[in-house]
Write a protein that binds this DNA or RNA. Structure first.
Lengths: 150, 150
DNA sequence: GTAAATCCTACCACTCAGGTAGGAATATGT
DNA sequence: ACATATTCCTACCTGAGTGGTAGGATTTAC
């Protein structure tokens, strides 16, 4: 599994905040209730999103979180990258400037690099806005059997 | 990480067998030596490939393995699928006909399904032959900065 | 001043990746 | 017949990471 529960929940939280924007701050308790997820666990996830500058937060009564930008200005790629650390499909791809010692002669490396590129390209092209408006054509593309008839 | 060492080594072994085809059976000791990998560990991996019908094997002296088909007739997707079990980027995608209970209302599911489709499409289009001939244009596509000048 | 909320630190059970170890079965060449 | 080279099979082990839980300190609104 390339994207763990952490990344999936992070996206769910961001989508929930996007859907419920414009009404001041949204409490984590409300999000957990709506999405039917453990609030305690979401706490640790939203902390990462907050420290990463994706949210604004307010402590105390009537406090909570809200998006720092408009939904269309968040790509799925950056949200997942922040919470997952990396989205590389294999651990032999160059990270932080360090590459595998066999890189120069490895015949399979171009495959992994190409796969990494395909994934990043897909995730960078989809925004939070696409998620909450249910842009199936953009998300599912050729694999969507409903997109043609709609 | 979506593809573990097992899947990567499996592909490496298949590529090694493809490169050294036509000379009867190739022993695992030779493969491990050439690829600089633990023979004992490769043993468990090649066993899966063999049982999956991808190889022919011969026990005893001068025994070893060879490809059951031509390199161009193996897609990377089927090799990885066999050794990894699944290539789904998240564990909330339908597997074995069972889908997540929130599937009907989940706004992020189309994203994961789309990502899964993009990955499968890429990996199904690349064969073992592409790997051993170093078809960079096919593997790296738009992400290849050398492909244009070559 | 109290209730509601974020923030922070620590802990924990379970699974899986990435191997290692040792030997049994089988085929070849002499 | 026998030694050797090989696949095949079962069992085990260690460390890291996933997916949480627990408890309290701090801050803010009413």
């Amino acid at each position: 599994m390339m994207v763990s529960t952490t990344g999936r929940y992070a996206l769910t939280v961001m989508a929930d905040l996007a859907r419920n924007a414009g009404e001041g701050f949204v409490s984590l308790a409300d999000i957990a209730e709506r999405e039917q997820l453990s609030m305690k666990y979401l706490e640790s996830i939203i902390s990462v999103l907050n420290k990463g500058g994706m949210l604004e937060s307010l402590r105390g009564k009537n406090g909570g979180y809200k998006l720092a930008r408009k939904p269309a200005e968040y790509t799925v790629n950056e949200i997942l990258l922040l919470t997952e650390g990396t989205l590389a499909p294999v651990n032999c791809i160059m990270q932080d400037g360090v590459e595998c010692e066999k890189a120069a002669t490895c015949s399979t490396l171009p495959l992994w690099a190409g796969l990494d590129g395909v994934i990043e390209n897909y995730l960078s092209n989809i925004t939070l806005e696409d998620i909450i408006t249910g842009n199936r054509k953009k998300m599912l593309g050729d694999y969507c059997n409903k997109c043609e008839t709609e």
